[in-house]
Design a protein around this nucleic acid. Structure first.
Lengths: 205, 205
DNA sequence: TGTACATCAGTGAACGCGCGTTCACTGATGTAC
DNA sequence: TGTACATCAGTGAACGCGCGTTCACTGATGTAC
């Protein structure tokens, strides 16, 4: 157990952590201020020393999620090494890996209903990871003849959409969608076929 | 105004409709029994003459959504006419069209958190539309040489995932994802590239 | 057609509950001298 | 090092609220004769 400094020591983070595990366990709506406070061994009122209210707490959790995610994407991209193609595929996989490893963060970010309008920091944080994927797409698109090269933002959006769809439909308890294949395989093959369609992988490789 | 038969006449459906428009306006969590009853000009208690409770009402709304969706898919598929390819592409588009035309139903189905476990009818209803997409994929896959033909359920899953991802990320107010392109175009081009990857469309057509 | 009775959709009032939030407070920690 | 004071993180109790749900009821409709 980490030492407690001033009073609780690190209540703010403890509350975020409690919220994250609550969201993970009970779903995006299953989180309550009272319960989070209880898990942090603190009175509900203490929450308001660190957050403006319930929304702000979820927003902070989502924000931390976006940061972790962007770091993960950055690490996966690895400055385009060893090849633009491999780096791009890694970033695609990173999406699913993130959802698997940080389900609480993932839910806070995409399923909790926090609005980006009300919390612009969230938008900026999300931009960071999207920018990495777009960078990867941009680098990769250099390998496509210019006259039939789609905009990089377009094909990064495709990958983003496919990744998100695989996660939502097959890597979680979505209605009517038991996974016919492991989500990892599904995403891998899906991205593979898509990249072949762009002429970036040899047909029948 | 439709005539009222016995007492209200058709309260059950009126409640479902009220719930759908509430969900559409206030989000999946913004729906309450009291508010739905109010919109149907009825006491909250009356709801319990027709539904076991709140969950059951949402489940009915979702169920109706699945039926509409399956009908739409069926219509889009049109028994594989004029070609297997065109029919398949139509079913892909149907997903987005449905989300656009029936946002309340869509949200009830995919974002309201009703569990398929607790409501098996939902699972069966969802199976119907999935089966149509798989049928379309199966028919289309006959055009791929057998030795490099992926399982039909796999590539229907890819399309399903891409469609769902496009809808969630770009056709709705999802965090950090302002649409760089119209969702319809994004889905159209995405599916196009994917099908080219499968060798079903001429490269550079 | 008329009357007596059965059915059951919707009422009105109330319930217990847990929620997010507030407020004056207390007491542990940090700081000035 | 010791004392006096300031700060402010967390307390404890309470609030108003809207929720989902229940219950005995009423009165419109349907049915049997």
């Amino acid at each position: 157990m980490p030492k407690r400094g001033y009073h609780h020591g690190n209540l703010k983070q403890a509350l975020v952590d409690a919220a994250l595990s609550l969201i993970e366990q009970k779903g995006p709506t299953g989180f309550t201020v009272a319960e989070a406070a209880k898990r942090a061994d603190v009175t509900p009122a203490a929450v308001y020393r660190h957050f403006e209210g319930r929304e702000a707490l979820i927003a902070e959790a989502a924000l931390q999620g976006h940061r972790i995610f962007a770091d993960l994407m950055h690490h996966a991209y690895a400055d385009g090494q060893p090849t633009a193609l491999a780096a791009f595929e890694s970033t695609g996989r990173a999406y699913l890996a993130f959802a698997r490893k940080f389900p609480g963060h993932y839910m806070a970010m995409f399923e909790s209903g926090v609005s980006v309008q009300a919390h612009p920091e969230l938008g900026f944080a999300a931009d960071r990871s999207r920018a990495i994927l777009e960078q990867a797409a941009e680098a990769l698109s250099q390998h496509i003849p210019e006259d039939r090269r789609p905009p990089a933002t377009m094909f990064s959006s495709h990958i983003w959409a496919m990744s998100h769809g695989v996660v939502e439909l097959f890597a979680r308890g979505a209605p009517g969608a038991q996974a016919p294949f492991p989500p990892e395989d599904l995403l891998e093959t899906g991205i593979g076929i898509y990249l072949r369609g762009l002429g970036l992988i040899e047909p029948d490789h």
